[in-house]
């Protein structure tokens, strides 16, 4: 009898120990997960707080004028962000103008036209290229693309449009090779694989039944893509394009090498300019004086606000398509 009781208590206490251990490990696990999860919003808040506090001296000194002043004279401690803002917006918009149609064209080619055995290899190649770091585009742009562009494209183009009212100004000036135009083209090549891989993924979510039905009605490939597949995938394509725009806006190294770092806004696209990220990358480690550094951080804050708006709308659109897929 006593023996039974003894083993019974032993088993019970053993069970109690293991239950306690399980509870402890559960608690630890839950705590660790929650702690790690809290870290993410904490980093985000930290980024905002540190940017705002770092930018404060410059913003309070220059006020809203910081946004629309072109002058950037470190020696006189006068700083205005207009030229970098202009450069960032113009290069990103031009890059999107080139990359969007070409990227969608590649995606359509891959989902609809490409012979089957080639589809996977080309698709994989494009995805791999989307991962190439931007500094590679930068060094290629500086040493290979800019000289080629200067000789083969800029000079002939300038001669062609010289004297024509608007084009003559837009493509006038001196063909340095580096400048807003070159930076935009390199950006467009950089975001191209990105746009096509996102668009291809979205086009693949179009139910085959829809396309087959359209083909069955006698639609041509163009009509199926333009009237059925693309409208179905629209919010995904737009979301992907916004993500690419976010990338273009923040691209630092691809632009810094070739934009020319000039704080003057000029009418010609061939002239050098600067962008927000290029200004920060080039000047931050050499900046002296609190107001200079603070102005650069204010540029960073501005970039963060712009990309935040773009990325948030991209997410909103991509969520919409996810939801529809789930439903």
């Amino acid at each position: 009898m006593t023996d039974f009781a003894l083993t019974d208590t032993a088993a019970n206490s053993e069970r109690a120990v293991s239950a306690r251990r399980a509870a402890l490990s559960d608690g630890f696990f839950r705590g660790a997960s929650l702690g790690a999860a809290l870290l993410v919003p904490l980093i985000f808040a930290g980024v905002i707080v540190s940017l705002v506090s770092g930018a404060w001296p410059a913003l309070s000194k220059f006020g809203l004028g910081f946004l629309y002043t072109e002058a950037w004279r470190p020696i006189h401690e006068e700083f205005g962000a207009l030229a970098p803002i202009y450069g960032t917006l113009v290069t990103s918009v031009l890059a999107m103008l080139v990359a969007l149609p070409v990227g969608i064209g590649i995606a359509i080619f891959l989902t609809e036209l490409c012979p089957r055995p080639l589809r996977r290899p080309i698709g994989i190649a494009i995805e791999l290229l989307a991962g190439i770091p931007s500094i590679i585009y930068g060094i290629w742009g500086l040493f290979v693309f800019a000289p080629w562009l200067q000789e083969r494209v800029q000079t002939p183009l300038m001669e062609m449009v010289a004297g024509v009212p608007v084009l003559g100004t837009l493509f006038g000036g001196t063909p340095y090779g580096i400048g807003i135009f070159t930076a935009s083209l390199i950006l467009s090549i950089m975001i191209l694989p990105f746009i096509s891989s996102v668009t291809r993924d979205v086009l693949e979510t179009v139910p085959p039944v829809l396309k087959e039905a359209a083909y069955g009605l006698g639609c041509t490939t163009w009509e199926v893509m333009w009237r059925v597949a693309l409208p179905y995938a629209r919010s995904g394509v737009v979301g992907g394009a916004m993500l690419a725009l976010g990338r273009a806006l923040g691209a630092t190294m691809a632009v810094t090498f070739v934009i020319g770092n000039s704080h003057h806004i000029r009418a010609s696209l061939f002239e050098p300019g600067t962008s927000i990220s290029a200004t920060i990358a080039n000047e931050f480690s050499e900046a002296t004086g609190d107001i200079y550094i603070s102005s650069l951080i204010a540029l960073g804050l501005l970039l963060f606000v712009i990309t935040f708006i773009v990325l948030a709308s991209a997410q909103w659109m991509l969520r919409a398509i996810e939801k529809r897929q789930g439903a």
Partner: peptide, 17 residues
């Protein structure tokens, strides 16, 4: 939402932070 913003935010911002 915050994580996806950080995922594609410009990396130069990280440097400034």
């Amino acid at each position: 939402f915050v994580n996806d913003i950080l995922l594609s935010a410009p990396s130069i911002i990280t440097g400034l932070f």
